[in-house]
Nucleic acid binder design. Structure first.
Length: 350
DNA sequence: AAAGCGGGGCC
DNA sequence: GGCCCAGCTTT
């Protein structure tokens, strides 16, 4: 696609098919700013009624600055992400006090306000001050990665930097409001995350993702981070054919189930044995890996043969000693059942 | 239930 | 300056 063609098509499309009745499509920076903050992580449909009510209560930046935080939060109630409201209020007071009530007009200055990052500042600068500044929110990232076939997770620094450069290189010489609104409209109404309406898209003819049928693969999703690994030693302590089980706490994994005693390693196992009585640690068994949705548990099974059990060892709350074949069926977690079944005499060779 | 989201906060 | 989080929604 030729340089400049993207903007020409987008502006033309915005004027024909974009949204034109949104109440914040004005040049008052206070109203633009308020809308951009409300629209962070919140969809247009939800924002509309809040926006009107908020402006009725605080028609100007001065009115907002003069309000109490409680009044501001009351009007934000239901929109969520309340730090946005607190930052908005603080920013209004700062503009009144430090800038004499004049809203800053460059992206760099706007960006200094609390709650305003680079993309939000650029949107305000473009809409309210007609500045040539590029926005790059989630919608725009989706549009750009698809149209230009940009690979890699857009949250990764190198990819994000490339997207910022691209976004800046696409800016038109004028019509910044229509252009910026066009990017937002396209992402929100046509270039949808799932089932994009490519037949309505002004970029369909030049869209890399469309040409390659890869709309579903772009933007590249965040790489699933490696599942965290937890290590635990499980004690298979056997005395007179009975194995030691303990009731797990109600909360957390395997809540309320009977399971084997756990410890961090051999040292602790020695200590545990000394408390329980006398006996020997046998060579530990091979590790057993159990996979949960949110982590991987690596179990080191540590068999212990008790030759003597101290008197108080059976009295502990939640602890019991069960014949191994009973223990297997006592409602233990799956990997524990597996371990018990592997005990040489376990299940009596069945 | 899993991913996505802009900015803030922490290192 | 880079990485992760808090808080909430959408898929």
């Amino acid at each position: 696609m030729k340089q400049g063609e993207f903007a020409v098509r987008l502006i033309d499309w915005q004027q024909r098919h974009g949204r034109h009745d949104l109440p914040w499509q004005v040049s008052d920076p206070y109203r633009v700013w308020l809308s951009e903050i409300m629209l962070q992580q919140t969809q247009v449909a939800s924002v509309l009624s809040y926006y009107d009510r908020f402006l009725q209560a605080f028609p100007t930046l001065a009115a907002l600055a003069a309000a109490s935080q409680a009044e501001v939060l009351a009007l934000w109630s239901g929109l969520g992400y309340y730090s946005r409201a607190r930052n908005l209020h603080r920013a209004a007071q700062r503009v009144m006090e430090a800038l004499g009530g004049r809203f800053p007009s460059t992206r760099a200055e706007i960006e200094l306000l609390p709650g305003v990052g680079r993309s939000t500042a650029a949107a305000i600068a473009a809409f309210a001050f007609d500045r040539r500044e590029a926005i790059l929110d989630g919608n725009v990232k989706r549009v750009l990665t698809r149209v230009f076939g940009i690979e890699g997770f857009p949250g990764d620094k190198p990819v994000e930097n490339r997207l910022w450069s691209l976004a800046e290189s696409l800016l038109p010489a004028r019509d910044m409001a229509a252009y910026t609104q066009g990017l937002m409209d396209l992402g929100a109404t046509v270039c949808l995350r799932a089932n994009p309406k490519c037949d309505e898209c002004p970029m369909a003819a030049c869209c890399v993702a469309r040409a390659e049928g890869r709309q579903a693969e772009l933007p590249t999703r965040k790489a699933k981070k490696a599942v965290p690994v937890r290590q635990v030693m499980m004690l298979l302590a056997v005395w007179q054919g009975k194995v030691r089980l303990e009731r797990r706490p109600d909360r957390g994994i395997w809540g309320g189930l009977l399971s084997l005693p756990e410890c961090a390693g051999t040292q602790e196992a020695e200590t545990w044995l000394a408390q329980q009585g006398e006996g020997d640690l046998l060579p530990s068994w091979p590790e057993l890996v159990h996979v949960f949705t949110h982590f991987r548990l690596v179990i080191t099974p540590q068999p212990i043969m008790l030759s003597r059990r101290s008197d108080d060892a059976s009295q502990e709350a939640g602890a019991c000693w069960l014949p191994i074949d009973e223990a297997i069926h006592a409602g233990v977690p799956a990997p524990v059942g597996k371990l018990l079944a592997a005990w040489p005499a376990g299940g009596n060779g069945k």
